[in-house]
Nucleic acid binder design. Structure first.
Length: 210
DNA sequence: ATCCCGAGGG
DNA sequence: CCCTCTGGAT
């Protein structure tokens, strides 16, 4: 079994488990998507959806965020953690898009990463979700799954994991792979108590916990 | 390398 | 109680 065969086997099996895996953040407009992704750092999408329901109802444009009181923004997002930084970033992000990008969210990796609270991972998710531009956003789940399955090594940075996955898998598989790896990591190959006993990938796993 | 940060799970 | 959750900035 070549390395490529193994990689394809892994993706095939995970695809069978989560054929319809997709983003779980709620949004209507592109700026709401970007905000939701930015807010989702180190928290669950369920927690983000809970607070964006009211946030998106009360703030109806980037201008609303740009002129908002930071303390008010904090009160909306208090429950998701890291709320002081996120509130500050939210206001500044809106201001920057208005002042430096003429109110239009850039469709460009490097420009997106200039926005406060937006790093490579967030930019990747945004470009893949909104424009269907092939990207593999590497988060804690993608890293963990990739390392356990031997597609990456312990100690690899998110960027190193991303590069290894991009090299192994075809470009047209990246977006779907990203969502399916995340679902697999979130619900099955969990950080704690992974379901190794019933895992279809047990035979190729580098670190089964049985 | 460390800080920011709360909620939920085990 | 401790660990983890779709990280980013310093």
């Amino acid at each position: 079994m070549t390395k490529k065969d193994k990689a394809n086997f892994i993706l095939d099996q995970i695809s069978k488990m989560y054929p319809n895996a997709s983003i779980e953040l709620n949004y209507r407009k592109n700026y709401e998507l970007l905000i939701a992704i930015m807010l989702s750092a180190q928290t669950t999408d369920v927690a983000v959806n809970k607070i964006t329901k009211k946030l998106f109802l009360d703030f109806k444009s980037l201008e609303d965020y740009a002129k908002a009181d930071i303390k008010v923004l904090e009160s909306y997002i208090k429950t998701i953690g890291l709320y002081r930084n996120k509130a500050k970033n939210l206001k500044k992000l809106a201001q920057m898009i208005i002042d430096e990008f003429q109110g239009v969210i850039p469709q460009d990796q490097k420009l997106l990463e200039k926005l406060p609270g937006v790093g490579r991972k967030t930019a990747n998710v945004y470009l893949a979700e909104y424009y269907k531009i092939p990207r593999i956003a590497v988060d804690t789940h993608v890293s963990r799954v990739s390392i356990r399955l031997g597609l990456a090594k312990v100690g690899d940075s998110p960027l190193q994991v991303e590069n290894k996955l991009m090299k192994i898998y075809d470009r047209d598989q990246w977006i779907r792979l990203h969502h399916q790896f995340i679902h697999f990591g979130r619900y099955f190959c969990k950080a704690r108590n992974p379901q190794c006993k019933t895992c279809p990938l047990l035979k190729v796993c580098k670190m089964p916990m049985i």
